[in-house]
């Protein structure tokens, strides 16, 4: 680790004022400290925002506002979240371990970096870490990497579970920064790699997430399911957050599908959703919708299994929700 300065901010405004190039905000540190030790992140200065008074979960009219510094555990066990957004509580609980969830913040969870082996190893090339150095994952180990929305430059995946649920819930990310305050609707926070894989999100330098606001829960049944070969404490091979609202007539009134582990960002399966809404809630329709979504998949030799896996997962999950 390179030497750095450390300061603790008392308010979001102060944190943003403290920002200068080379500064990084420190939340729970469960990913940033890890990346600093690897030499992947080399901040000159840390502004600790983990103790900002952004640690409450509040009901605001028909919405729920979750402070950016709320710890993952506290989000998942909150009675209001469990009752109104069970999919979110489930997603958070499948992430990491109890120890990590006790410390990791909501904002930090959103901003965690990919676990691609090349990204995490400073002795190997990686376009995300060192733009222009190349992406050895494409010819090398991409077993757990992206099948959707990837580019020639990067096939990384976003590792968060929580962000997948937030994408399905269409949460809003509240940001403050040198350019003022703004609201970014999920899944718009994270971007696809394109030619600039070094940029995970649409945030600008100095931006600080202050809260995540949850709109009223969507109608219908919801579920979060995570697939992994180790039964716990592992990142998703693929995960799904799904909402399905089937009318009494058996017609799909509403459907949202967000996928994790398949792309550089939580992936809303919009083609599948569009294919389903207004049609019958049958296994056959679910399969057609999943296949419509996966037509755009660009799998690599070692992660081609994610195509049938994702298809099966969409179909099986929707069937479960429909019954």
């Amino acid at each position: 680790m390179k030497p750095f300065d450390y300061t603790r901010a008392d308010s979001a405004a102060q944190a943003v004022r403290e920002y200068a190039p080379g500064t990084m905000y420190l939340g729970g540190g469960t990913n940033l400290v890890d990346l600093m030790r690897l030499g992947v992140a080399e901040p000159e200065r840390l502004v600790d925002v983990s103790r900002l008074p952004l640690d409450t979960i509040e009901s605001v009219r028909d919405r729920v506002r979750v402070g950016a510094a709320v710890r993952n555990t506290d989000l998942a066990v909150d009675p209001m979240i469990r009752a109104r957004y069970p999919m979110l509580a489930r997603a958070v609980l499948t992430g990491a371990s109890g120890q990590v969830r006790n410390v990791a913040t909501v904002a930090g969870n959103l901003l965690q970096r990919t676990r691609c082996a090349y990204f995490q190893d400073v002795t190997r090339p990686c376009n995300k870490r060192r733009p222009g150095s190349g992406c050895p994952a494409i010819a090398g180990d991409h077993t757990n990497l992206a099948i959707l929305g990837s580019s020639e430059a990067c096939v990384a995946t976003h590792p968060s579970d929580m962000a997948v649920a937030l994408a399905a819930l269409e949460a809003e990310v509240h940001v403050t920064g040198p350019g003022g305050d703004r609201i970014i609707p999920m899944p718009g926070l994270h971007r696809l790699p394109g030619e600039e894989p070094e940029r995970d999100t649409v945030l600008e330098p100095g931006d600080l997430i202050t809260a995540v606001e949850l709109p009223p829960p969507p109608a219908g049944a919801t579920v979060y399911r995570k697939v992994r070969e180790r039964a716990s404490f592992a990142f998703a091979l693929v995960s799904i957050a799904a909402v399905l609202d089937v009318g009494d007539d058996g017609v799909v009134a509403g459907c949202r599908i967000a996928l994790g582990g398949v792309a550089h960002a939580p992936w809303r399966a919009e083609r599948a959703e569009q294919a389903l809404i207004g049609g019958p809630a049958t296994g056959e329709a679910f399969l057609r919708a999943a296949e419509a979504e996966l037509e755009q998949a660009r799998p690599l030799p070692r992660n081609a299994y994610k195509v049938p896996l994702t298809r099966n997962l969409i179909v099986s999950t929707l069937e479960g929700l429909a019954s």
């Binding site: 082996a117 180990d141 180790r230 039964a231 716990s232 404490f233 592992a234």
Partner: peptide, 24 residues
């Protein structure tokens, strides 16, 4: 994994090299 391009090994940590966890 053996890194054919650069040599050496890949998945050199306990988040990538999975050993059974309690839930397994």
């Amino acid at each position: 994994l053996t890194d054919e391009e650069f040599g050496g090994f890949l998945r050199r940590d306990l988040a990538q090299y999975h050993v059974p966890a309690c839930a397994d």
